[in-house]
């Protein structure tokens, strides 16, 4: 199978070169041959992908890639996702998606459009085929042996359903930008450079944007639920790398809309789409090159020089094509003023590029500042500055780096301005200057946004337990920027909503139809305008989430022993204890049980059957909710031991041996794998029992540990105590916590089960990976998330709990979902809409007849 795979990658390279050669030809029959070669290429890549999947599912560890990223104990779903989890598999996946898109272009566009486009996409494919054949072949086998008996397994961080979909979406997003790029370049090389190529490219750049956005959002969601630091964007170099083409691509989508409407920004659009595609390759280069240290980097990649050469080739190629065609790219109508829709879109474009520059600068600064020349230039400027005696600045002697704070501070004002523009631009006409009724148009959304911002802020305040007065907090820059973001986001939201509402009302009145039908009609009649509104609404929701997230409350690394608590927001979080489990998926989990109890809880109406009728129940001191008072001390102790066994021991230990005659038991851990994988786990279990023995008295219970096996021996003084202990192992636990204090011998403190939520963050240990992974627990709320992660603290029973209350975070996922779904719908409508008449424009022969005028069509 590996040999077949190697042959198929070689054929793939041959076919992609064939597509390039045939695709650049001027003859019509060769164009048809290009389409056939593209089909052959796609099916060969598909066959190669099936080969790799077969090697993965059959655990063929003689293949280096299979041995590096899988092992025999992994669940099938992650074995399949190993296809793109490693560098070599990702190359094959990239080639497959590229060939798939070429096939889709060949199927959905007419012959004239395919000319040049397939060839340019073929160049992109050839690059990845070259990498597979000459540098990083996924079908490479061990040359001297048949491979290890088992593979290395997949990094546990990647064994997450979101990570199963994030890489393919992100890669597909990068690849999909190649379609509008190829259309743009082919229009420059072969056809007219008017708006025709943009009409064809529109659905493709919408698809690319939707996939790219989905990739970023799913990556953010993965970081939020998997990495345990509480956020969704860490400004990691590779994250930033993926953001760069998204920013230029988003700028391109806006300026393309202007060109489609007014034929302006022609050169600008060619530059933007070229930049977007080049930045996609740059982002991939960042992941592979280890240029900047990052969480996402592939280790020991050999591809760095290849990517560098490809980047240089693309940049020089684009500059050459644009340079030779630049004289045909002028002559567009005048802008018509800054306060027009196109003027604001241009301003937005500049802001997007400024953001791109800022993010790139912050990302590459550690690399730049390594260079002596860079340090000399900066130090020269520092000397001049210091000589002016304005303020003293230190010279730099080592590489500089900036952190998330720097990125947040520099990008937030630009983001806020873009948000404001997204609200203002739809109110203005494309070409003419400010209309007379602009203030009337502005008044309603402005008024509504102020009112809704007050409500939003009140909601935000209710989620954050700040004691400081609003008017004191507003003086801090962080809070003020949050308020501004909320105001602008609401403004953008209401501009879109009001326009939608007016159009729907007019449609309902004119066609005498219901609301939903009118909504459908309005959207389908002008999907560009209303699709844009929906996407802007999604963006506004995302910014509301960012504003809310900026005001989150966080408690970091609070050290807690069992039954200790921390307070956050309106809740007390009680650490109930730890338990360990072993999963069939091959890892052991240490689970912290955390009770989320509202601070103001007072209800005492519930009474459980397990509590004898002759005892008294009173409200207990926090965190214990009930205080159960007994008449006899022995009854209290028996009650405590029975429920202690049920609550804390039953899930983790089994009665290995019961000696009723001598009132003794031997306890063994339920899972030996968990004991072996989690350091100190057996001692934790033993310590739990030691504590009980010391509380009840060693004369009542004596404990011994086995010298060789993981066994604990307990001997009881009297029969009822022994019976209570045994009973606990066979009953359903009815409490979450139970405690006995010898200084109050008649009272047992309990936390009843079922009254409040229990959340369970985990730490997972994998047999083949040294570092444990954090599995966060998120209590998702409508207005805020409670986010918990923990690490083991010194001492067998203690944890370090990190907890944060993240207001409005759900709005980010909702807003992103709205944007992506809307853009996918627009792509879908584009695929099935009437084809624009572009044959004459793209066909080489006709262009020759049209001459230079054709380029200005």
């Amino acid at each position: 199978m590996a040999t077949l795979g190697q042959i198929l990658t070689l054929i793939s390279l041959f076919l992609s070169v064939l597509v390039v050669i045939l695709g650049f030809s001027q003859k019509r029959h060769l164009l048809q041959a290009t389409v056939e070669a593209t089909s052959a290429l796609f099916f060969i890549d598909l066959a190669a992908s099936f080969c790799l999947l077969e090697l993965l599912v059959t655990h063929d560890f003689s293949n280096r890639y299979v041995a590096s990223y899988t092992d025999s104990s992994m669940p099938l779903v992650y074995i399949l996702t190993a296809f793109w989890a490693g560098e070599k598999g990702a190359l094959l996946f990239w080639a497959l998606v590229q060939a798939g898109l070429m096939m889709l272009v060949a199927l959905t566009e007419n012959d004239a459009i395919q000319k040049g486009v397939l060839a340019i996409m073929g160049i992109a494919h050839s690059f990845f085929a070259v990498l597979m054949v000459f540098a990083s072949n996924p079908f490479e086998t061990f040359s001297t042996s048949s491979g290890p008996p088992d593979g290395n397994g997949m990094n546990p961080l990647l064994q997450n359903p979101l990570m199963a979909v994030h890489p393919p979406l992100q890669l597909a997003g990068f690849v999909a930008w190649s379609v509008p790029f190829a259309l743009g370049m082919s229009s420059l090389l072969f056809g007219a450079v008017g708006v025709q190529w943009l009409k064809v490219a529109r659905k493709w750049y919408l698809l690319a944007w939707a996939l790219h956005t989905a990739g970023l959002v799913v990556g953010g969601l993965w970081a939020y639920v998997e990495l345990g630091w509480g956020g969704f964007w860490g400004w990691d170099p590779v994250e930033n790398g993926a953001l760069l083409p998204w920013l230029t691509g988003t700028a391109f989508i806006h300026s393309a809309a202007v060109e489609l409407r007014t034929s302006r920004f022609r050169m600008w659009n060619y530059i933007l789409i070229s930049l977007t595609f080049i930045l996609c390759i740059f982002a991939t280069f960042l992941t592979r090159s280890q240029l900047i240290h990052s969480l996402h980097s592939f280790q020991n990649s050999v591809l760095t020089p290849y990517f560098l050469y490809y980047l240089v080739f693309l940049t020089v190629g684009c500059l050459f094509v644009l340079g030779t065609r630049h004289k045909y790219l002028h002559g567009s109508p005048k802008l018509g003023g800054v306060f027009t829709r196109q003027g604001l879109i241009l301003l937005g474009n500049i802001l997007f590029l400024l953001l791109t520059f800022v993010v790139m600068w912050g990302t590459l600064l550690p690399k730049f500042s390594e260079s002596k020349m860079f340090q000399d230039v900066i130090n020269g400027m520092v000397k001049i500055w210091n000589s002016l005696n304005i303020s003293f600045v230190h010279e730099i002697t080592e590489p500089l780096a900036v952190g998330p704070d720097w990125f947040n501070k520099t990008t937030a004002p630009i983001g806020a301005l873009l948000l404001l523009l997204s609200g203002l631009a739809p109110l203005l006409p494309y070409k003419s200057t400010i209309p007379k009724d602009i203030f009337r148009k502005l008044a309603m959304p402005a008024l509504l946004s102020v009112l809704s911002s007050v409500v939003t802020l009140a909601l935000l305040e209710s989620q954050t337990p700040e004691t400081k007065n609003f008017f004191i907090r507003i003086r801090s820059l962080g809070f003020l920027s949050g308020v501004i973001l909320i105001l602008f986001a609401n403004f953008s939201l209401f501009v879109a909503l009001i326009d939608f509402y007016s159009a729907i009302r007019a449609k309902m009145a004119s066609a005498n139809i219901g609301f939903l039908r009118a909504l459908g009609n309005v959207f389908s009649a002008n999907p560009r305008r209303f699709g844009g509104h929906i996407v802007h609404m999604g963006v506004a929701l995302c910014f509301l989430a960012i504003a809310g997230y900026g005001q989150r409350t966080e408690i970091k690394d609070a050290v807690l022993k069992p039954m200790q608590s921390v307070s956050i927001g309106k809740n007390d979080l009680v650490f109930l204890g730890l338990r360990s489990t072993y999963s069939r998926d091959g890892y052991a989990s240490l689970v912290a049980k955390i009770l989320v109890a509202p601070k103001d809880y007072t209800d005492m109406t519930v009474r459980l059957d397990e509590i004898p009728s002759d005892v008294q129940i009173e409200p207990g001191e926090r965190p214990f909710l009930w205080l159960v008072k007994f008449k006899q001390q022995e009854d209290a102790i028996n009650f405590f031991l029975k429920h202690f066994s049920a609550v804390f021991l039953q899930q983790e230990m089994v009665l290995a041996e019961v000696d009723r005659k001598n009132l003794a038991v031997a306890l063994a851990p339920r899972s030996l794998e968990a004991i072996n994988l989690i350091p100190g786990e057996f001692h934790r279990l033993a310590d739990q029992l030691k504590q009980v023995a010391s509380i009840l008295g060693h004369d009542r219970i004596s404990l011994e540990m086995s010298k060789g096996d993981p066994l604990l021996f307990l001997r009881f003084r009297d029969g009822p105590l022994f019976q209570s202990f045994i009973q606990g192992f066979s009953m359903k636990p009815r409490f979450l916590g139970v405690s006995y204090d010898p200084s109050e011998p008649f009272k047992i403190k309990v936390i009843p089960e079922g009254m409040f939520k229990v959340v369970e963050p985990e730490v997972r240990a994998y047999p083949k990976f040294e570092n444990p992974t954090t599995e966060v627990a998120i209590d998702v709320g409508i207005f805020s998330d409670l986010y918990l992660a923990f690490a083991k603290a010194p001492g067998s029973q203690s944890i370090m709990l990190t907890v944060s209350q993240n207001p409005f975070i759900s709005l980010f996922w909702i807003g992103s979902f709205v944007m992506i779904i809307c853009v996918v719908m627009l792509f879908w409508l584009g695929i099935f809409s009437r084809k624009p008449q572009v044959t004459a424009v793209f066909c080489g022969e006709v262009v020759q007849n049209v001459g230079k005028e054709g380029f200005n069509a």
Binding site: L4, L18, A33, S39, F50, E54
Partner: peptide
């Protein structure tokens, strides 16, 4: 089961690729 499906996939893909390549040759030298 999955292995069989993958093997069928490989066979079908290679057949379709061969067919497309033959058509490509035919069209090129027409």
């Amino acid at each position: 089961m999955l292995e069989i499906l993958l093997e069928i996939g490989i066979a079908v893909s290679i057949s379709l690729a061969t067919l497309a390549f033959v058509r490509c040759i035919v069209r090129t030298f027409r």
